[in-house]
Design a protein around this nucleic acid. Structure first.
Lengths: 342, 342
DNA sequence: CGCAGATATGCTCAAATTAAGTATAAGATT
DNA sequence: AATCTTATACTTAATTTGAGCATATCTGCG
């Protein structure tokens, strides 16, 4: 490898060892791009034409020669692969575990992937054959509580998870597993925390309940997998998507990011539906509108929407100024858990 | 470079271009290790003996051959350089901007650094000559509001920042700069948000107010720099430290992480001082104790501390169970801004 | 001893926020 | 006109927050 500047090398050789020791690494930049359509959150997935592989997030390697920053590199790849222009972009997490990609076993530089969350309004892509929008609950069916506790939980997840807890060898291991399941799935008197998307996915992964965890060449019929524990994605992209969901669910509570997904004007009920779609739960309507109105997040346009099926609703617009105000609050989400099973 | 597995390559060549296109990249793992001593938050810095370079965070390159995960690599480096065992570790952010390291100009693989936050209780290191604990406010003097607004703000930062705002070329640029300064420093009626550590640092950086932004070989006398805009760190380590501070300040509000920094037992006042040290502000004592007690974060030991100088205080211990409870709340921090200038 | 100074701890009170509901308005559908 | 649907206003009780007062229990000093 090329030599470093004098200063850098001196410092590094003391603190971090020599650079030439290390093996090859490729940084992969991946984007969980989120949009809203039909009251459900969608994410953009690309599929290699003709290949029977599971689809994945738009992604590409970071090229230090062309890309000034990581985010710039990501935007370049996404633009190339989908023609989509991303507005809001936020870095999520960097994944570097060796054993997470089932497709990959040995050889080649080690992939380290930096995951991003992006929010977009428009959904037109240049190559609809390869890049498609997919309801994110297809990959995490247990995360949608909008019409009560997901059926999948009771019918499949909970029993299998209980079995997994009991399958632990030692008594203390059993205890640990149970506590973890209680915490992430809100079992023992605990409540469902809609932000723990990644923790739940990781748990199901370890418990062998999600398809990526299947053996090497083993492939599950897609339809079956869909119905059971959510559809597959390549590499560790489902993990990145889970991270994106959790982060977004958290963020709408204290930063006005939902508006990145809304049309320029909208009714308060549309806004509520958007928040509900992302959060995976239902909200109290009257309180929601009071909250949004009182916080000055939106302002009325003089216009009325008559598409509502009932009394026409007033159209609002996001007050861009609030971003420059005090805490720039988000939409507080006191989710009420719908008791009846869906 | 070595060839990839068949599957991986097919997918990647469609979606992300060929791997062999990309230039060299090194992943540097850096840790902002935080401990509490003398009512102030300290961070561990290492310095190359004999070299007159600014110190930096413990760090080292990620070695894909030896390290199974990124975090494992980090732990290995920190252990090697300091002998410290880290308990709580959390990934912060991955920095990859080309133009951020003043020491480095051209040549060599592109460094991409993954920053981590670690919390430790014990502070003994194996090589005290090279690894030392430093008050983090030394690097961000404007972040400590415990005895009122920091003097440095009024005397230096604000005037220079105002000048920078006015130095913008176009009218709209001026406006933008001002809004940004108002938002991050809470100027125009806004309030100081103690979590925006990074945003403030970035702003000062762009405004040319922090020393890293000085030219290539240019060096400022350390004493001077300390008094002016905080002490220097190598590379972009001050940025990583700023990220760590902001994240920790945010996190103590909703997760019980302070306890990672406390001794096994402590008085409520010690706990309060710890939170204040991290948050950089003062708290209402009675409310603080009510809060902590009501949330069930701590439980009384039967013991009493008589080291207080007044009425002896009861010793408490952290209830580990709360981690496994509902929202596992943190210590809400309604900071009261001390009005008098420090 | 008795009192000042310090800290710990218990309690009050008003203001603000939240959760949940009732009531009414204004359109479409039949 | 009756009914359904959705929008919007208003009420109420419970809870949380911010701030302060009062009292308890130690140390140190005259």
């Amino acid at each position: 490898m090329v030599k470093t500047s004098k200063l850098g090398e001196t410092a590094r050789s003391v603190r971090g060892g020599l650079l030439s020791d290390v093996g090859g690494v490729v940084i992969e930049l991946s984007a969980a791009i989120v949009a809203l359509a039909d009251e459900s959150p969608k994410t953009l997935l690309v599929r290699s034409p003709g290949v029977a592989l599971p689809p994945g997030l738009p992604c590409g390697p970071f090229d230090p020669l062309r890309h000034r920053t990581l985010e710039e590199g990501l935007r370049a790849w996404v633009d190339e692969q989908t023609g989509l222009h991303m507005g809001y972009v936020e870095q999520l997490y960097t994944f570097g575990d060796r054993d997470r990609d089932p497709d990959r076993r040995a050889g080649g530089p080690r992939p380290v992937s930096v995951g991003y969350l992006a929010l977009v309004r428009q959904t037109a892509v240049k190559n609809p054959a390869e890049a498609t929008w997919n309801d994110w609950y297809r990959y995490f069916p247990w995360e949608d509580w909008r019409s009560g506790p997901p059926a999948l939980l009771g019918s499949l997840v909970t029993p299998k998870l209980t079995a997994w807890c009991n399958a632990a060898k030692s008594k203390s291991d059993k205890q640990r597993r149970r506590e973890r399941a209680d915490l992430t799935f809100g079992y023992a008197g605990g409540s469902w925390d809609n932000e723990r998307v990644l923790e739940r996915y990781e748990l199901l992964f370890e418990a062998g309940l999600v398809s990526e965890a299947l053996g090497d060449g083993e492939v599950v019929p897609p339809a079956d997998a869909d119905a059971r524990t959510g559809a597959l994605l390549t590499k560790d992209h489902r993990r990145i998507l889970a991270t994106a969901m959790g982060r977004l669910r958290g963020k709408i509570k204290y930063r006005p990011v939902v508006f990145e997904l809304m049309a320029p004007t909208f009714t308060l009920f549309q806004l509520q539906r958007a928040v509900e779609a992302l959060s995976g739960g239902r909200l109290h309507k009257q309180n929601f509108r009071r909250l949004v109105a009182h916080q000055g997040l939106v302002e009325p346009t003089a216009h009325i929407s008559s598409q509502t099926g009932g009394r026409p609703a007033e159209l609002f617009r996001f007050r861009r100024e609030v971003v420059h105000e005090r805490r720039a609050p988000g939409v507080r989400v006191p989710l009420k858990v719908n008791k009846k099973t869906g």
